[in-house]
């Protein structure tokens, strides 16, 4: 009797708590995703991969996919490298008390809209922008920067955003490293480089990879930076999707592009997921 009572009070029926959130996800995420996949497989004659064949036979679209991938991976690569010194500085060079403050200094612009941040870079990079003005002021020559509305400007804009994001996730991993580990290693004679290689890097790795993954996802699906900094002449896939929905309104093509993009993201995320699972199994053993 007593055990019965404690058992009933211990078990919480999760469904009343979960149902609101789950039904929202079902109606606005799972169902639309399913619908999108079905739409991309629907052709005039029935079901089939015709839409995808058409996608890969259209140079305009495959080039856009190619550009999306180049853009996202370059930006992610730069961001992943920049994040280390930044997070390292905040965690190991700043007093414990001030760490959140330094982190927030890097992260503050993160909370304003993507659009506004991209636009503010137009002011700096454009041919009559601040950088040109500054160079002309110093050298006295008139220069044409020619950066705005190129792929490089897009890469720069997205890399900057990714650096903030990856610094944030890497910070989370580095800050929870126990000081005693480092002290112990040092007492036993490890040099700074070895401490980094054998302690800090492996422990920071999950946070770093999470940042890399998230950066890639945001970059591959972004339309704002490629439009405002990269210009419209060489569009990436996200820009094409936007223009289809507001222009030609070819819904099955839009769905096909979306599915291609989703599969790309999944393929790129797969190595990380496998790594995560392997890691979990290892710690379980």
């Amino acid at each position: 009797m007593v055990t019965d009572m404690s058992a009933s009070s211990n078990t919480i029926n999760p469904w009343p708590f979960l149902l609101p959130a789950l039904s929202l996800c079902l109606l606005f995420f799972l169902l639309p995703t399913l619908n999108m996949v079905i739409l991309s497989l629907t052709t005039e004659t029935g079901f089939g991969f015709d839409n995808f064949k058409l996608f890969f036979a259209t140079p305009h679209l495959t080039q856009a996919l190619h550009r999306s991938l180049i853009l996202a991976s370059s930006a992610t690569l730069i961001a992943s490298l920049v994040a280390w010194p930044l997070a390292y500085f905040i965690v190991f060079c700043v007093h414990k008390k001030w760490r959140p403050l330094f982190l927030l200094a890097i992260l503050a612009p993160f909370w304003t809209s993507f659009t506004i941040r991209a636009f503010s870079w137009q002011l700096v990079l454009s041919d009559n922008g601040v950088v040109t003005w500054f160079i002309e002021l110093i050298t006295g020559f008139s220069v044409t920067l020619g950066i705005l509305y190129t792929m490089n400007a897009s890469i720069f804009g997205l890399a900057l955003f990714g650096s903030m994001l990856t610094t944030f996730t890497l910070y989370g991993a580095l800050v929870s490293i126990d000081d005693k580990l480092i002290e112990a290693a040092s007492t036993l004679g490890a040099k700074p480089f070895h401490i980094f290689k054998d302690i800090i890097f492996p422990l920071g790795l999950p946070g770093w990879l999470a940042g890399i993954f998230l950066t890639f996802i945001v970059c591959v699906g972004d339309y704002a930076v490629p439009t405002l900094l990269g210009g419209g002449l060489k569009p990436v896939l996200a820009q094409i999707m936007l223009s289809i929905l507001k222009g030609t309104y070819d819904l099955s093509q839009a769905a096909t592009i979306a599915v291609v993009l989703a599969i790309t993201v999944m393929l790129c995320g797969l190595p990380l997921i496998i790594y995560g699972l392997a890691k979990r199994n290892r710690t379980a053993v």
């Binding site: 959130a21 789950l22 996800c25 606005f28 995420f29 799972l30 169902l31 639309p32 995703t33 619908n35 999108m36 739409l39 993954f213 998230l214 996802i217 945001v218 591959v220 699906g221 972004d222 339309y223 996200a238 999707m241 936007l242 929905l245 819904l251 839009a254 769905a255 979306a258 993009l261 989703a262 993201v265 995320g269």
Partner: peptide, 23 residues
């Protein structure tokens, strides 16, 4: 499922919803 929207490009979620309400 609940945290998935975080790791999917926003534009895919947006497009999915748009296609859904149209259909």
């Amino acid at each position: 499922i609940v945290v998935c929207p975080l790791v999917i490009p926003m534009i895919l979620i947006g497009i999915g919803m748009r296609l859904q309400i149209v259909s």
